[in-house]
Amino acid sequence: MINILLILLLQLIYVPILTLRTIFLVKNMTMIAAFLGFLEALVYVFGLSLVFSGDQGTLAMIVYAGGFGVGILVGGYVENKLAIGYSNFEVNLMNKNTDLIARLRNDGFGVTVYEGEGRDSKRFRLDILTKRSRGKELMDLIDEYEPQSFVISYEPRRFRGGFLVNNMKKQRKLQLKKVKTDSEQVG
């Protein structure tokens, strides 16, 4: 019975690692993906060896498969909590909502506004790139100001320049400056 529980535990470790490895690979973070691939293979071999070496037979295989399914749920949950990467939101509005635009900018979102021509009238599109971890916050603000807006989001694979990148560089410089100041005060 202990082998059955161990098989389940290994699956609950293996599948989330598999999920994260895949995501890191897609996001071009190959060093992390390679390390997770090593861990994944190690856990996989141990789990599979338990399934085939024991006398549990069918029960071990069912637990192995069930653990895989539950592991997918756990891996998805972990990935959503980590919110790795960035999202780009295209927000289409009937009117130029300057209150929403100002609020988004004040809250640290980079917003580019485009004016276009729809079937019946002018339209406005907000182009917003943000960390995935702030996606819900952004959607809540959009819903508060423009509940009827049409929103599309996707994950860009690469980008450079612009408000977000420049803002990240400024924050990094401030953090390095603070660390240097803190270490000088200690020393």
Rank of each mutant, 00 (worst) to 15 (best):
E115F: 03
K27S: 06
L176D: 14
V179K: 15
V151L: 02
L93T: 08
I13T: 04
V70A: 13
G135I: 01
E117P: 06
A60S: 02
D99W: 09
V43K: 04
N3M: 09
Q185I: 13
R132E: 04
V179H: 13
T19N: 08
L73M: 12
N92A: 13
M139H: 06
S53A: 12
G76Q: 08
Q56C: 02
A83I: 02
L129P: 03
L10E: 03
T112Q: 02
M168T: 06
G47P: 00
L9D: 12
V91W: 01
E184C: 08
V151Q: 04
R21T: 04
G116C: 08
D99N: 14
K81C: 01
Q11L: 07
N95C: 07
T112S: 00
V113E: 07
L104F: 05
L9I: 15
G118K: 03
Q56I: 11
K96M: 07
K178I: 11
V51Q: 03
L138S: 02
V113H: 02
I62W: 09
I62C: 06
M168C: 03
Y86H: 11
V186M: 10
L141F: 00
V78L: 09
T19H: 01
N97C: 04
V15E: 03
S49T: 13
Y64R: 10
I17D: 03
